[in-house]
Design a protein around this nucleic acid. Structure first.
Lengths: 193, 193
DNA sequence: TGTACATCAGTGAACGCGCGTTCACTGATGTAC
DNA sequence: TGTACATCAGTGAACGCGCGTTCACTGATGTAC
């Protein structure tokens, strides 16, 4: 059952996207190659016609996921970004949410190639955020970058810590609410600084 | 080869501590029961004389790890806490570092019992931090709690994001430096607020 | 205090299972003539 | 344009391996008399 070259490319892309979602939901170790291929609509044997190993796919899926987050960030101002990012909706939607928040713990234990993909993804997301950051507060480029790195770490921390709490725990919500308002507070009064 | 009751208790504690370290280093899925028992100086068969399952141990190891972090926080003021927490030393010493930073990504996918342990650990760490937070800034109890939740999420985010970057990556260091100084800056000028 | 017996922490072989990966095979697609 | 052949995406059985867990066994400890 050979398939059109274009079809094969499409199938490959579907595998990467499916993997990106499943990895975010259950972690790199939580999804097997067979399950992943089945979710994409294939049998497991064909996997190695597209990827040299599961680790290779992990790197591609990470790049795919982070670029999704970046795409969704385009043209969104900082307060809006925070409101969307630090929300219960985002916390509860791991599969469609931010790859960094979902997988940075896993990434830390993966080969350097995957960590490099993460670093590149963070850099590219920062570029998008800096653009907004500069206009926000009449900051120069360097300060804007620092603020955006800080804000990203802060936001990731809020989601990650909230997710480690039981689903219905008051603390899980409290973490989100507190962090959201602490980050937003200085922004709305930024004219004073 | 039965063993004294006291000895058995001691052995059990050693298994929990060993597990706590190994899980932080390699994640819950990254360490098997057999390897873990070997690291503690035993064969794997005896594991189930102490724990009902690996998941049970995971919960105990998390509690043990977080209480270690809490113990180390006692009597440390906030700037000192930040300086120690958001450091390359901490980032590179996963096994002896903060359990929340090392495992909250994993915890998010674990059964509620383990998440409950995390939530309880976070609460108890917050209690310790609030005590410092109140004195820091003439804050009332409620504001101190909010500040400490925010600071903890912020700090965890910094470590977690930094660890997702390649070991020698400039970005990994930049994240730590930026977050450290952004968190410390308002503290040193807090008399003005 | 001394003896006989029950307990149970620790051992190491064995269990079924799912994992990542390999492989011979299929058959439609792509290519050479 | 039509025909013959090579390619290779996708299939599904099979591989070795390490996992969490179970189990019969050991022998020092703890207990009952």
């Amino acid at each position: 059952m050979k398939v059109t070259k274009a079809q094969a490319q499409e199938n490959r892309a579907r595998i990467v996207e499916t993997a990106s979602t499943l990895f975010r939901e259950r972690g790199y170790d939580g999804v097997g190659v067979a399950e992943l291929m089945a979710a994409a609509g294939f049998t497991h044997g064909g996997f190695y016609k597209h990827f040299r190993s599961k680790a290779d796919l992990m790197a591609e899926a990470a790049a795919c996921g982070i670029s999704q987050t970046k795409a969704r960030t385009g043209g969104v101002d900082i307060p809006e970004f925070i409101n969307r990012y630090i929300s219960r909706e985002h916390r509860d939607a791991r599969g469609s949410g931010c790859t960094m928040a979902a997988l940075c713990g896993d990434a830390a234990r993966q080969p350097e190639a995957i960590k490099a993909t993460f670093a590149a993804g963070i850099e590219s997301l920062l570029t998008a955020l800096e653009r907004e950051g500069v206009t926000l507060d009449t900051l120069d480029q360097r300060k804007a970058r620092a603020k955006m790195i800080d804000m990203l770490a802060h936001s990731v921390g809020a989601i990650v810590l909230s997710r480690a709490c039981p689903d219905d725990s008051p603390l899980a919500d409290e973490i989100l609410e507190v962090c959201r308002s602490e980050i937003l507070a200085p922004l709305s009064t930024s004219v004073d600084n």
